[in-house]
Structures are given as C-alpha cells and as structure tokens.
C-alpha cells in the first residue's frame, strides 16, 4: 500500500465569507465588523468552548479555521495525536495584539499592562491554542513572510511528513492586521489515495496548494 501525502480538507475565511473544501458556507449575519463576525461564526458552529472568548482575534480566527478543516475531512479515524504537526505562517505576526499591549503602557497615569493581552503577543500562540483544543502534540513551527509562500510551506511539511514522527499536518496562512484579515488552512494526511472516501482528496503539491489558496 502506497501512502501519499494528501490534502483532505481546506478552508478559507476572508471578507466575512467562509469557504470549506471549495463550497461557500452560509453565515447567518456577516455584515458586521471582524470581531462580531468571529463571534457569530463561533455561535453558528456550536463550539461550546468558553476559552474562545479569551483569545485575541488572530487566535479566534485560527481556532475557527482549524475547526473547519478538522470537522470536514475524510481522514482516517485512527490516528496518533502526537504525530499531528501544525505549521503556520503570516505577514503581521501578532501586530494587532502588540498594538493593544502598547496601549496599556503608553500612558504613565493609566499604566496597566495586562497578562491576558501580553500572552497573545506571539504568533505561535495560535498553534498552542489549536494544539490544546485538539490535543495535537506533534511538530510546530510558525514562519513570517511577506505573502503566503506555498512552495516553502509545501517543502517544510513534506520534510516533516517523511519522518515517522509525523503522519498528519495542519498547515496554513493566517493573518490579522487592523480590519484586514485572511485565513487559509488545510489538513494533510499520509494515506492510501485509492481508499479516497468522501470529501476532498488531492495530492499534496505546491501547485495544488496555490490553486486552493487562490
């Protein structure tokens, strides 16, 4: 049996619109600001995960996108969660929360830095949040680049998937800067392509990642 790296699901969230495996999802009320949109989407997904409200918008967006790719795929039921890697990238790191932390220290008469804000001033916290929610304890890496580099992400994930320590990977691009935001996430599994099953099943190649992203 030949095991091949296969993209089993993907998700895009942009301009208050959500696509899962290429299909547009109906959102109850999407003519709202970004923060409200995230809460609406959370409620529509019935996640029942109160920690969601403690997160910054980057992590909220990441948790929702990850949920979409994990819920909507045809991957095998039996997998080891310590072999699921998470590799993400963006342009703006945690700049939105960085600005919020600076607001708490800029005025010496109102100087109250908040630990709950500061902890989100690292982009890889989003990897931590996804790892915690899904108990994924495999490889991690967060990269920062000007735009989404599908070639690089494909290379890095492929190297990891060649190792026996990694069977699955959640990868993507997740950026928040002011009111501008974008999430693109996909789930890769080493599987036998002939046993395709339902849903998306496509080879993990850089060209395919670009195609799904655009």
């Amino acid at each position: 049996m030949i095991m091949e790296a296969t993209i089993v699901s993907y998700c895009k969230i942009k301009n208050n619109t959500v696509w899962v495996n290429g299909e547009k999802i109906n959102i109850d009320n999407n003519s709202v600001d970004f923060s409200a949109f995230l809460v609406n989407l959370y409620r529509q997904m019935n996640l029942n995960y109160p920690k969601f409200f403690k997160m910054d918008n980057l992590c909220k967006l990441g948790i929702l996108a990850a949920e979409m790719v994990i819920q909507n795929n045809s991957k095998s039921e039996n997998f080891e969660k310590d072999k699921v890697a998470i590799f993400l990238a963006n342009n703006s790191s945690s700049i939105e929360t960085d600005r919020n932390h600076i607001k708490t220290i800029v005025n010496k008469n109102d100087y109250f830095p908040s630990p709950a804000v500061f902890v989100y001033t690292l982009p890889n916290i989003i990897i931590g949040e996804i790892a915690i929610k899904h108990k994924f304890t495999g490889e991690n890496a967060f990269f920062v680049s000007e735009t989404f580099d599908a070639n690089f992400m494909h290379t890095y994930a492929s190297i990891a998937l060649q190792s026996r320590h990694t069977t699955d990977a959640v990868c993507g691009w997740i950026n928040v800067d002011g009111n501008e935001y974008e999430a693109f996430m996909y789930y890769i599994e080493k599987k036998n392509l002939n046993k395709a099953g339902n849903g998306l099943n496509t080879h993990h190649t850089a060209e395919m990642i670009y195609k799904l992203y655009n």
Binding site: I127, T137, G138
Partner: peptide, 11 residues
C-alpha cells in the same frame, strides 16, 4: 532535531 507541543496551557 525535533519539536513537540504540550497541548496543555498557552503560558
């Protein structure tokens, strides 16, 4: 060289 996540707490 390898990495791994605790999946326990963010801080």
């Amino acid at each position: 060289g390898n990495s791994a996540n605790d999946a326990n707490h963010i801080s």
